[in-house]
Amino acid sequence: MMATTMNPNEPKRIHPHKFTLWVAMGSICMMFAGLTSAYIVKKNQANFQEFDLPKIFWYSTFVILLSSLTVQLAVAAFKAREMGRYKKLITVTALLGFVFAALQVTGFKDLSNHGIQFLGAGSNAAASFLLVIVGLHMLHMAGGVIVLLITFVRAFATKTRNYSSMPIEIVSVYWHFVDVLWLYLLVFFIWIR
C-alpha cells in the first residue's frame, strides 16, 4: 500500500474517520432499534394510551429535509471553493437545526396542552416513550449542530486555510443520517398507531 495509494489510478479508499462515522451510525441505529422495539412490546400490552402526533411535526420534518439540502449544497460550495456561499450555507443549516428543535419542543407543548402527560404520576408509557425517543433524537441533532458550529468557526478562521473537504463531508453524512433517522421515527410512530 505504501506505493499504491500514491498512485492516482488506484481506487480511493474510504477515509478512516468517515468509516468510523458509518460504524457509529450503525451503533446509533441499534439504540433506536432497541427503543422502538421496546415500544412495540409495550404497545401490545394493556393500558397503552392512544393519541395523535402533533401537526407541527410535519413542519419540523420539512425543516429538517431543507437543512439536509443546505448542508449538501454547502459541501458542493466548499468543493467549488466558493467560500462565501459555503459559509452562508452552513450558517443556514445550523439555524435550521435550531428551528427544528424549537418546532419539536412546540409540538410537545401542544400535546401537553391537550392533556397528554409525559412524566410523573399519572403519565402513560406511550407518551413517555414519545418524549424519550424524540428527545434522544434531538440530542443527536444537537451533536450535529455542535460539530457544525466547530466547522463554522474553522471556516471563519483566517490564520489557517483548509483545503480538505473531509470534515464537512463527514458532517454532512451525519446530518443526513439524523434526518433519515427522524423520517424513520416519524413513519414508525404513524404506522404503528
Binding site: A24, G26, S27, I28, M30, M31, G34, L35, A38
Partner: peptide, 14 residues
C-alpha cells in the same frame, strides 16, 4: 459491542 451496548444504554435511559 458496537451493536449491543447501545441497546443496553436505551434500557438504562428508560
Amino acid at each position: 459491542g458496537v451493536l449491543s451496548f447501545p441497546v443496553l444504554l436505551s434500557g438504562f435511559i428508560l
